[in-house]
Design a protein around this nucleic acid. Structure first.
Lengths: 245, 245
DNA sequence: CGCTAGTTTGAAAAAACTCAATTGGCGTGG
DNA sequence: CCACGCCAATTGAGTTTTTTCAAACTAGCG
């Protein structure tokens, strides 16, 4: 795996999306202890019910958060892309109410809760920036509910692709071809659809000239029409602080 | 409408679920300015896209949070019961990415963001307790995704009833008959089902001897079997800090 | 070169939706 | 006090969407 940039710089870039932190605050962030690991594909990083003592900063690769049903079906609740902190909520809810797993080989940084809590208590602006990150994570989950509950299969799949594209774009991975190492089975478990339905929907989207998915990469042929098909409004991602709409 | 207890006491009781705040911190909370209003049924309190400057503390009645689809369908994202703070996330994401409305006559307290932010910056334990509340709200949304995405209609409806029961019970409203002023159309919009399907599912649950819904009240005949039918595990509500499971 | 994970397709079955009509409860105005 | 009107609940029936099952196909990888 290629050398990543300094993990803390990835965190800083994320928080600077909204926070406008000062030099002294950046210095504090740079003092955080980060334990970097490489993890294979399909490894579970934290199990539902488990109590965790550190947060994960995703440096490279893709993660999913999921729950199971009694009959063994899986519901994916979010995808995580580089720069995300998938379990930041454990800072105040240390018991996992879902599981976290890799879907690609990944590089992660672990930061102990203790260090993060101390930093938050020393510096309210950093705390607020982190709080804000957890709120965006929540906004994504809410919009996911609308997507699964009320959109057609066609719009649902398009919506997920729009969201992933927007979030990847925000970390500089939005240029064609966009990395999209997500199997059709994963898409199905994310949108509450069967693999068969996902396959047919992706074929429709391809035949409409919106996107092509091939070899773990996506080419977006017509983003405005894809957005329209998905009823996608990026407001809920709160990607910048400037007022929209 | 009958006189409520002091609004701030309702907030304090909520935060004390987990926080164990000290006398001085309670005094600070009691200094928060709260503007109490009565609101009629079916009033929208905040619209998607709007920027808000205060938080709402729900004192009496039920609220919903929802989004629309292009063809006018509605997806309810959460129900709120007395004691909840339905838009606490606006403290750091002031632009609403969904709407908030009453489904019953309600009494609400409005607390300016400014006062809450100042309190949070003076007192990190209060800030952490509020942060934790927003994280639980997020956990509820995530579990809602699993519910809508992967459970059968039968389990979905049962799950929603379990959640409402558990949350109402946590604020002392869980004794039979449980207040449940939610129409079948609302249930449908919440679980991504049609009214017809909700009606038939509720009939099934009644015929199985699990619950009776009548005149805006619910009687729970067999809570353990209802939990089982719903695949309900209250872990995600993080209702107490003691370790479960 | 063969294995495996993932994709693709067809066809029948199941779940849920829509449409349409009816019923019931309750508040309001006469 | 009763009739009307409205909102909500209920039921039947036909249709649509999506699932399930089964099988074939493809591509990367050891």
């Amino acid at each position: 795996m290629p050398n990543s940039p300094d993990p803390i710089e990835i965190l800083i870039r994320r928080l600077q999306r909204s926070a406008g932190l000062e030099t002294s605050e950046l210095a504090e962030l740079r003092n955080l202890p980060v334990d970097v690991h490489d993890v294979a594909k399909n490894e579970t990083l934290a199990h539902e019910g488990e109590r965790v003592e550190q947060c994960i900063l995703l440096l490279e690769g893709f993660l999913i958060r999921f729950q199971h049903t009694r009959d063994g079906k899986r519901q994916i609740l979010s995808f995580y892309v580089p720069g995300d902190i998938p379990d930041l909520q454990t800072l105040h809810l240390p018991t996992m109410d879902h599981s976290l797993a890799t879907i690609t080989p990944a590089r992660i940084g672990r930061i102990p809760h203790k260090a993060m809590r101390e930093l938050c208590h020393r510096n309210r602006r950093v705390a607020d920036a982190l709080w804000r990150e957890t709120l965006i994570d929540a906004a994504v989950a809410r919009t996911w509910v609308r997507c699964v509950g009320r959109l057609t299969a066609h719009a649902r799949v398009a919506h997920m692709l729009c969201e992933l594209h927007a979030r990847l774009d925000a970390v500089g991975l939005g240029e064609d071809p966009v990395p999209m190492p997500i199997t059709q089975a994963d898409f199905g478990d994310a949108m509450g659809l069967s693999v068969v339905q996902i396959n047919r929907t992706l074929r429709d989207l391809r035949e409409e000239g919106l996107i092509t998915l091939h070899r773990r990469e996506m080419i977006v042929h017509d983003l405005p029409r894809l957005h329209h098909a998905a009823e996608f409004d990026p407001l809920y991602l709160h990607l910048d602080t400037r007022q929209r709409r």
